[in-house]
């Protein structure tokens, strides 16, 4: 049962990442590979404040979201100068810069040593304090966050704002002629997506209780892209499905009886194979309508 709860928590965290990235890539057509950076910012702010200063998880979460929003605003302004392939390359560069900060700012992040001893969230009502120390209680928190992100994503995509995002994806310059300052829309959704990713980062840090920079490398951004491409771009349900499939599917290898070192490599091979097959047979993903 603990194993199922663990997979559900990880799926929930990845689903939040998938839904948030889907707003940027799937709906708006901005092929960003910088998402792991905001995931990392959320995780590091939470880790530093919880492990170093004993701050309440929920306050740390809010501060992580605020910092992710501020950084996303700056990065979004830089990225707004680019289109298409250049946008991808610029976002790649920015992910590497943020990763380098995690890796090299030793006094704050402890660099490659990482930050251990991150506590689980605590709820305090009056004089009572209730720690979400069990995995089940943490699962409830994770699912609550995932549902909130899901509802927020649906709210956005069903609004006039969401329709404009899709029109930007289709033909930004033609849309501008109809009176839209598209750069503001792109900035807004980039910041919203980053804030959601920071929530996932905070949950991750508190759940695993240890973080180091390797969790926020470019590879993680590529994994998030795989999640939404598998589930289907511009489809919030698809992002959730993609997250569950890509978290659970490699776990099935455990039951095949392969040695653990081979099983780990097989996981990457499976991701790659799934993406190649998908591009050939269903380029719009499992639940999507939109093609890149």
């Amino acid at each position: 049962m603990e194993y199922v709860i663990h997979l559900s928590i990880v799926s929930g965290i990845v689903a939040i990442l998938g839904m948030s990235l889907n707003l940027i890539v799937g709906y708006t057509g901005l092929l960003s590979v910088a998402h792991a950076a905001f995931y990392g910012i959320g995780a590091y702010v939470t880790a530093i404040l919880l492990a170093g200063f004993g701050v309440n998880f929920f306050l740390a979460l809010l501060l992580g979201m605020a910092l992710a929003a501020a950084v996303a605003l700056l990065i979004g302004l830089v990225l707004s100068r680019f289109d298409d392939d250049y946008y991808v390359l610029a976002s790649l560069g920015l992910n590497i810069i943020i990763y380098s900060v995690f890796l090299n700012w030793n006094t704050l992040t402890r660099g490659p040593l990482g930050i251990p001893g991150i506590s689980r969230p605590e709820l305090g009502i009056g004089g009572y304090r209730f720690g979400l120390t069990s995995n089940f209680s943490f699962l409830v928190l994770t699912l609550l966050c995932a549902v909130l992100v899901y509802l927020a994503a649906r709210f956005i995509t069903r609004s006039s704002f969401g329709r404009v995002l899709m029109a930007i994806r289709e033909d930004e310059q033609a849309l501008q002629v109809f009176g839209y300052r598209t750069v503001y829309y792109k900035l807004a959704i980039f910041v919203i997506g980053a804030v959601m990713a920071a929530v996932a980062g905070a949950l991750f840090a508190s759940y695993i209780t240890f973080i180091d920079p390797t969790s926020f490398m470019l590879r993680e951004s590529i994994f998030m892209l795989s999640v939404i491409i598998l589930g289907g771009l511009a489809n919030t349900n698809g992002a959730v499905a993609g997250a569950v499939i890509l978290v659970v599917l490699p776990e099935l290898l455990r039951f095949v009886g392969l040695p653990s070192n081979i099983a780990a490599q097989m996981r990457l091979l499976l991701y790659g194979l799934a993406l190649v097959l998908l591009m050939i047979y269903r380029p719009q993903g499992l639940f999507g309508k939109y093609r890149l």
Partner: peptide, 21 residues
């Protein structure tokens, strides 16, 4: 230059609805 992967209705609603973010 239409918004190709949007419905015919959405292509029109885009020019009829709010411009402020």
């Amino acid at each position: 230059r239409l918004f190709e992967q949007m419905t015919v209705l959405d292509n029109l609603l885009v020019v009829l609805t709010e411009r402020r973010v």
